[in-house]
């Protein structure tokens, strides 16, 4: 009977962690997507300083998320998003139009892989 109870406890734990992690990943993914959209709007409207701040926020939010996301998400998917987030601030500072394509790519990757 101990094995049965232990098995049930493990299954409850697995389901709990599974659902919990998925909810957390979806929530964080939405937050990052929202910041990316905000950065996009600020850049398009010509508000450079705020676009840079938003890009900086995007990078730090991603860093915070990435620290724990590696437990649940494949590393090669995270590496791709790492590359994009690392460039955002410098693209915003240099006023490069490329930032729009990178933001679109970032949002696509987050929606697809998270």
């Amino acid at each position: 009977m101990t094995r049965i109870k232990l098995s049930i406890a493990i299954l409850i734990l697995i389901f709990g962690v599974g659902f919990g992690s998925q909810i957390w990943i979806n929530h964080k993914g939405s937050d990052i997507t929202e910041i990316a959209s905000q950065t996009e709007e600020l850049f398009i409207s010509g508000n450079k300083s705020q676009a840079i701040e938003s890009a900086h926020l995007l990078g730090s939010e991603w860093e915070n998320f990435r620290r724990y996301a590696g437990i649940f998400v494949r590393r090669n998917k995270l590496t791709e998003i790492d590359r994009l987030c690392a460039r955002m601030e410098s693209l915003a500072e240099s006023d490069s139009e490329e930032i729009l394509a990178e933001l679109a790519e970032l949002k696509k990757l987050i929606e697809r892989d998270m």
Binding site: S7, I10, L11, I14, V17, R74
Partner: peptide, 19 residues
């Protein structure tokens, strides 16, 4: 591949088998 991706199905299958 995250380690938890291996641990979770192993534990789930074993627990289902016990049940």
């Amino acid at each position: 591949i995250p380690l938890i991706t291996g641990i979770t199905p192993i534990l789930a299958l074993v627990c289902f088998e016990v049940l």
